[in-house]
Design a protein around this nucleic acid. Sequence first.
DNA 1: GTCTATAACGTGATAGAC
DNA 2: GTCTATCACGTTATAGAC
Lengths: 210, 210
Amino acid sequence: MAVKKVKPANDTSTEEKIKNAARVVFFKKGFAATRTRDIAEEAGINLALLNYYFRSKEKLFDIIMLETIMNFFKSISVVFNMEDTTLENKIETIANGYIDLLKANPDIPLFLLSELKMQPDEFVAKMGVKEIVMKSVFLKQFQQGIKEGKITPIHPLHFIINLLGMTVFPFVASPIIKGIGDLSTKQFNDLMDERKRLIPKWIKAMLKAK
Amino acid sequence: MAVKKVKPANDTSTEEKIKNAARVVFFKKGFAATRTRDIAEEAGINLALLNYYFRSKEKLFDIIMLETIMNFFKSISVVFNMEDTTLENKIETIANGYIDLLKANPDIPLFLLSELKMQPDEFVAKMGVKEIVMKSVFLKQFQQGIKEGKITPIHPLHFIINLLGMTVFPFVASPIIKGIGDLSTKQFNDLMDERKRLIPKWIKAMLKAK
DNA sequence: GTCTATAACGTGATAGAC
DNA sequence: GTCTATCACGTTATAGAC
């Protein structure tokens, strides 16, 4: 038993409570529209404690932002670099994994995209996203498919854009989608579940389109 | 000659200058991060004039927001309801038109999606987006295609999501896309131009995927 | 209509008691 | 570590002269 922990901090430590609250509020409203008072209230603690633990709103934000990006790209990067799965398998894994992730955290993609736009270099450039994607097994398999004539030649970015777009876009545009289809959140999520099965089929068809 | 104008206001009237400036700043930074001083400076006028013409930051924002939504949905709604063009033609027209529109106004989609999320009912529900899309010729043609066995049966929303996603998503995610591909704005725009030709092909393939 | 000056308010951050 | 009270500052909005 007795699992060793690096930090004694459990989920109900004050620091963790503040971070959890910060995620909720930042994800929902973005940096500028968030007031430190909102976070304190959400965390059920005093406003002064927030500054005691994190010095400033911006420092707290940067921590949340970095953790969130890491989390998001880590998961995709792992799948992208699996050696022993086919390209098709990877597409399925990504569609499945991300849709579940986004159903559980629907506010994150729009949050990330909005805040990344504000400071593109601060995060995007630094993280070496370029290398992670362009040197991945995933990309090599894609280019191999082209060489073998199994895939219609296109710029790899089109492929990435379409896979990501089909998966992420509905969550980014959920208010409009829900509005058009008059969907409840449950109905919307069911539709997203359908896409787990459909996206791989569509991508496959797309890759062969002439 | 002598074109009659409803309002004498030309493009350099103070009111119009403020609105133009407001568009620039709101689109780039969103409501919360925008300071009325930024708008005044961008417009080259005094801060007090902004309140003289529009009463408050929020009132000015609502005007810009409404106009922008109208503009965006008006253009799609026209295409959606053309009686004498095929479904394929409509897809081409939308991909072409929107990509040009978004190249010229790359900040708008992320702006709209972010702000719509803040007040979903304020705008989405009111505008009858549901009716516009679901009762369109576009949709009827799609369902006719299913009936005739030319299109694999799926929920129409999947179709809308994919068409919109392929077209709009890259602009929403442009910082990441540019980061991954190490693209300049020019290179990015060229890639988007390629998509005008590719999206109709992909959508066509998608509609027949089994 | 347009400006300067300033009021009124909200928010991030800190001092200091416990 | 946690709280209450308060400061310090930036921002929206207005008053009033021109």
